[in-house]
Design a protein around this nucleic acid. Structure first.
Lengths: 176, 176
DNA sequence: AGCAGGTGTTTTACTCGCGAAACATTTCTC
DNA sequence: GAGAAATGTTTCGCGAGTAAAACACCTGCT
C-alpha cells in the first residue's frame, strides 16, 4: 500500500513541511506555496554553511575569510578592496579589516597601484594559495557526498531550476 | 538556430556559472560539479535574504527578531527561551537579548512557569501578533512574484528536489 | 592652474551574536 | 531527605560586521 509519490513522501518529511503545516493551521487561508521552495532554499543554505564552517575553522579561517581568499584564487589575479567587497557580498569596511588580518597572517599581500594611488591591489601569497588549494577539494568532496543521495537526472534538473530562480533574483535586484 | 536547451542557456547565464568557469580555468582538473547546485543554493539564499530584509527594516525589525516572532505566531502558543533558540537556529544568549528588547517594545510578554520556576514562557502580545500578520503576507507576495518566472511543473519539481536535498542534510547533521 | 565633485578606501562608533561561565532550580541517587 | 548531577536561563567579555563620517586621490570644468 502506497500513500503517494516518492516526492510527496519526501516533501512531507522534512522540517520545512512541519513549519508550513503550523502556518496553515494558524492561518488557514494563507497562500504558503512560496514557502515550499523559498523556505527550503533558506534552510538548505543554513545547514550547508553550518556543516562547512567546521572544517574551515579547523584551518583557522572564517567563512568570510575563505570567500575572500577564494575570490582571489579563482580570478587568478590581484583585486582591489572594492572588487573584493562586490565579489564576496560584503561591505568595504569589512574587507579592509579582513585584508589587514590576512595580511598579518601572511596569506595575502597588498601593494599600491601605480596609476591610481587611491586603490590598493590585494593578491594571494604562496601560503594563501596553498591554503585555498588544500581546503577547496575537501569542501567539494563533502558537497559531493551530500548530493550523492540524488540521482544523476536529479542533479541536472535541480541545477536548471535553481539557475532559473537565480536569474529571476539577479535580474530583479539588478533592475533596482 | 539554437545553441542548446533552455536549461543550458539558463545555466550558462547566471553569476554562479561565471564563478565555476573561473575555477575551471585556474584548476582545470577540479570536479566543480557540486558547485552547480550548492553554489546556487547559497547564492539564492543570500539574495533572498537581502531582498526580504528591506521590508523588515522598514517595520523596525531585524530578520532574527522576525524569525522569533514568527515562531511564536505559527506555534500559536507560548514557548520557552530554549525552544525559541532551537526553533530559530540561534544561541540561548541571543534569544535572551532579543526577548528583552521585544518585550520593551511590547511585542512579546513573559511570565514565569508555575511548575518549573527555572523556565520562562514567552508569548506574543496583540501588537506583536498584528505586526507578524501584517508583514508575512507581504513577504509571501514578494516570494510569489519571484517564483512567477517558473512554471507550475517547475514548482512541483523544485520542491521535491529541494526536499530530498534537505532530508540528506538534516539526516546527516542529525546523525552526528 | 585651481577647485568642485566623484570615486575608492579607511576609521569610528556602535550593534549583534556567540561561547563560556555563572546562576537558579529541578531531578536523580543513595 | 541531603548532596550530586542535570537542566534552563542569564550575564559577561569579546570578535565581527555595518553605516556613516573622514580621508585621499583623481578628473573635468572654467
Amino acid at each position: 500500500m502506497n500513500t503517494g509519490t516518492a516526492a510527496q513522501r519526501r516533501r512531507d518529511g522534512d522540517t520545512v513541511a512541519g513549519v508550513i503545516r503550523q502556518w496553515q493551521s494558524v492561518h488557514p487561508g494563507l497562500d504558503t506555496g512560496p514557502m515550499e521552495i523559498i523556505g527550503r532554499v533558506n534552510r538548505c543554505a543554513a545547514l550547508l554553511q553550518q556543516a562547512e564552517d567546521a572544517p574551515l575553522r579547523r584551518a583557522g579561517l572564517s567563512r568570510a575569510e575563505f570567500d575572500l581568499l577564494g575570490a582571489l584564487r579563482r580570478t587568478g589575479d590581484e583585486l582591489t578592496p572594492g572588487e573584493l567587497a562586490r565579489e564576496t557580498f560584503s561591505s568595504g569596511a569589512a574587507v579592509t579589516k579582513r585584508v589587514k588580518q590576512l595580511q598579518e597572517r601572511e596569506l595575502v599581500e597588498r601593494r599600491a597601484d601605480t596609476r591610481d594611488r587611491r586603490v590598493a591591489r590585494v593578491r594571494l601569497t604562496d601560503a594563501g594559495r596553498a591554503l585555498v588549494d588544500g581546503i577547496l577539494p575537501e569542501q567539494l568532496a563533502y558537497e559531493k557526498a551530500v548530493l550523492a543521495g540524488l540521482d544523476e537526472d536529479g542533479h541536472e534538473e535541480l541545477t536548471g531550476l535553481l539557475s532559473g530562480l537565480l536569474l529571476q533574483l539577479e535580474g530583479r535586484l539588478g533592475g533596482l
